[in-house]
Amino acid sequence: MNAFFALVQREVRLATRVGGGGGMAVFFFLIVLSIVPFGIGPDLNLLTRIAPGMLWVALLLSALLTLDRLFQADQEDGTLDLLVLAPQPLELTVLAKAVSHWLTTGLPLVIAAPILGLMLNLPLDGMLPLMGAMLIGSPALSLLGAVGAALSVGVRRGGLLISLLVLPFYVPVLIFGVSASRAALVAVPGDLGGQSLALLGAVSLASLVVGPVGGAAALRVAVK
């Protein structure tokens, strides 16, 4: 497990040091959501209604933004070869990468979400359910994203490719995430909120398997 934590520690260090681009995803999250009212107008009631959906769409896009460097940076400087050759199972290495991505991208986005919720006139009662749902759903974004990042290693314009590969796989996260976040705001029949939260958790748990296994398989092909 030492190898796992060593990799997570190194990734977090790299993201937070100068030039690491640690805050870029949060910045993108802020700016994308701030642009929305320019498109649809500053009507607060309308903004309240679309806020959960917009927040989730922006979360997805922001999480994508930093994925292209996940393995590509290591491929460019030769690190990837040594990661693949190390005694640690490649699945754990991919998991460490996904965990680091979540720590440096997903978690900051979840923390920034309430500020944007305020700007989109999301009622205060809706903040905690929103953050809770994002906390449960965002790991799936990093885990599934790792597969896309691994698949596009060594591909020119890989960043663009990742978006195309990964976004379809993000659809369940979006559906259950928005549904769980909205349930706190509008009256929904039955226990829809709890159900969607459970389903969101299920997607994340499934990604916990799919991400590392798929990512490792993709990397093995990519380095060869």
Binding site: L30, I31, S34, P37, P42, L44, L118, M119, N121
Partner: peptide, 18 residues
């Protein structure tokens, strides 16, 4: 009655922040 209103001045300031 709300923390944030998309009025011209606030919004311009936000763009400046960006």
């Amino acid at each position: 009655g709300t923390y944030w209103v998309w009025d011209a001045r606030t919004t311009s300031t936000l763009v400046l922040l960006f």
